[in-house]
Design a protein around this nucleic acid. Structure first.
Ligand SMILES: [Mn+2]
Ligand SMILES: [Mn+2]
Ligand SMILES: [Zn+2]
Ligand SMILES: [Zn+2]
Lengths: 127, 127
DNA sequence: AATCTTAATGCTACTTAGTTGCATTAAGAT
DNA sequence: ATCTTAATGCAACTAAGTAGCATTAAGATT
């Protein structure tokens, strides 16, 4: 189910993520490419790119899936390279943050991974 | 839009949350009460209970909304009483955790609130 | 360069989460 | 007992996401 062919549509999506470090929602991606490819294709390409470790995804505040460049599982001992994500409440822009989340120890629970979303105003909207 | 009448349906939902401290997904709630009230009613009651500060909600890993007892905005200076949530990957059970999330300072960003979800195995599934 | 294999796409139809409008009902105030 | 209107039920809708299947095109093989 990983990426094996560099089709025109795959290239278009890779080009977009080559231009930005932002996390883009799947509905935006479907909209951006609405005249270039079928929405089913967008979903399928994103799945494959994620499985290939080229993109990673997370759920934002409203449960909407967002994709961003890079792999979340890149550190040597095969644990998750966990980082936080940011979401601007004003303009909706979303980014990966170079902020590692320590996984806490909780009695009676075994924690494998975590998701951390920071919500506020981005640089543009803040001023 | 807050709760103003204690209808039969509101009481049923309050009774359920009186029995458990778990965070219950909205689809489960609709299913639990499918013979007792309309799904629209479930959605509307949950909205009102949340606005009233009786319940609070968050998005789980899959973007599904979950509700749990209590208010997230209860501390004196009117900031969010932020706590983490747990989701069991095996059985799907979800709980609030008595784990406060410190809001980090990040240059160029103004952070107002945050969401933190820990994913792993609960006590039952762990052993 | 022509051929072949099958990954990938387009399209249609479907499922599910969540919402809206509106007529009807019932909480609880008067 | 009456009245006001919050709350509900119902039906119809929107939007996110998925599945089946015929067709297309990457890119490997000859
Ligand atoms: Mn990221
Ligand atoms: Mn909680
Ligand atoms: Zn912004
Ligand atoms: Zn469990």
């Amino acid at each position: 189910m990983a990426i094996s062919r560099k089709t025109k549509t795959v290239k278009m999506i890779l080009d977009l993520f080559g231009e930005t470090n932002n996390a883009i929602s799947i509905v935006d991606l479907v909209s951006i490419f609405r005249n270039k490819m079928n929405k089913t294709t967008v979903y399928r390409i994103l799945n494959r790119l994620e499985e290939s470790g080229i993109l990673h995804s997370f759920s934002d505040k409203d449960g909407l899936k967002r994709y961003a460049k890079g792999n979340q599982k890149t550190d040597p001992d095969n644990k998750n390279d966990l980082h936080s994500h940011f979401l601007c409440d004003d303009c909706g822009v979303s980014t990966c943050l170079p902020l590692e989340i320590p996984i806490p120890t909780i009695p009676d629970y075994k924690i494998n991974t975590s998701q951390h979303l920071l919500i506020g105003q981005c640089d543009n909207c803040h001023n």
